[in-house]
């Protein structure tokens, strides 16, 4: 049952990341990887919300597996994030690489914390 939830969430989350990345990357010319940045921050926000709701007991555990572990897990990516940071550095765009890494971490952690607090406030 858990495996089925994992498959379902990821089979939606991973293509959503690709389409969002494609859509965003087709709309700007800068080297900053806004596509991956956006999915990683939004995924962190949603996971923070879901985890908070399950922690408060207002959402069932399976929702954390389906939407959290699986959908948000596949919507976000660390491998692409790492590759982009390394490639920016190799291309000599060190400032962009540092801004990308620090920006993703700060915004991701902030989004997760905000999602958690928001749901905790209303439950």
């Amino acid at each position: 049952m858990t495996a089925l939830l994992i498959v379902l969430g990821a089979a939606v989350g991973a293509p959503t990341r690709y389409l969002a990345d494609l859509w965003i990357q087709s709309r700007h010319e800068t080297r900053y990887p806004w596509g991956t940045f956006a999915v990683n921050v939004i995924g962190s926000l949603v996971l923070g919300c879901i985890a908070s709701a399950v922690y408060a007991g207002s959402s069932p555990e399976w929702l954390l597996t389906l939407v959290g572990t699986s959908f948000c897990g596949a919507l976000t990516t660390f491998s692409t994030f790492s590759f982009e940071a390394v490639r920016l550095t190799q291309e000599g765009a060190l400032a962009t690489a540092v801004a990308y890494v620090a920006g993703s971490l700060a915004a991701g952690l902030l989004a997760c914390t905000a999602g958690w607090a928001l749901v905790a406030a209303v439950t």
Binding site: A14, N40, G43, T69, F78, S79, C112
Partner: peptide
């Protein structure tokens, strides 16, 4: 697909939180 699904940024930030 495979590597994007295997790795995760959201769980990384939730773990930190």
């Amino acid at each position: 697909g495979v590597l994007g699904g295997f790795t995760t940024f959201s769980t990384y930030t939730l773990d930190l939180h």
